[in-house]
């Protein structure tokens, strides 16, 4: 018992240090593709946090969507746009300091709010419950529940959003072809209408 508790605490601090270090590397790395790999690290460690918080299904979803989907997409687009040649991604000092100021401000604000309202959480249990529950079935029921505590309407709305995104992505991708076929017509001075 004592061992598993100690392991939990140790893992939290280990994950925390690793995730913050990787996050800093993500935003400060000069090479964009490496930044994507660091981002993948942060997102994978977040899945570890979900496991510590007893949400295994969410950890699986996190890895599936972020690592298998979003990071792969980012890497793909970095390759397509030759972003790695964007060597000038060296933010100016003014830009950097403004960003740092904003980040610090948000952090300080958040911590102040937590400090001032810490007593409110105390009654709710001073530590996060780390029991592992079988959340798969519960999430499934909650998502399709039509009762007052159910999420069927947001669920359908998100499905609609995804459909819109699929159509939007295809439209954006097709637009290039339309432009290219239209381009020679505009600039054609010899009537090369090969369409």
């Amino acid at each position: 018992m004592i061992w598993s508790k100690a392991t939990g605490t140790l893992l939290f601090y280990l994950f925390a240090v690793v995730s913050v270090a990787l996050a800093i590397a993500t935003v400060s790395s000069r090479r964009i593709l490496r930044a994507a790999v660091y981002l993948m690290g942060v997102l994978a460690v977040t899945a570890g946090f979900y496991l510590l918080l007893g949400a295994p299904f969410l950890a699986g979803v996190q890895i599936l969507v972020y690592v298998g989907g979003i990071v792969v997409l980012i890497v793909y687009v970095v390759m397509l746009t030759r972003s790695s040649d964007l060597a000038e991604d060296k933010p100016s000092a003014a830009r950097k300091s403004t960003a740092l100021l904003a980040a610090l401000a948000s952090f300080v604000l958040a911590v102040t709010v937590f400090k001032s309202s810490e007593s409110a959480f105390r009654g709710a249990g001073s530590q996060a419950a780390t029991m592992l529950i079988d959340d798969t079935a519960m999430i499934g029921r909650a998502l399709l529940d039509r009762g007052p505590r159910g999420y069927v309407l947001p669920f359908e709305l998100v499905s609609l959003l995804l459909l819109a995104v699929v159509i939007g992505g295809i439209t954006l991708a097709r637009k290039i072809q339309v432009d290219q076929s239209a381009a020679p017509k505009e600039s054609s001075d010899g009537g090369v209408a090969n369409a």
Binding site: A23, T26, A103, S106, Q127
Partner: peptide
């Protein structure tokens, strides 16, 4: 074990780093 405060500081740290990335 890590308390609420630890978790919240961690997540707001990650959020602030994200803000820095967005702006810089």
């Amino acid at each position: 074990p890590p308390g609420v405060f630890h978790w919240l500081v961690l997540s707001s740290l990650l959020f602030s780093i994200g803000v820095y990335g967005m702006l810089s």
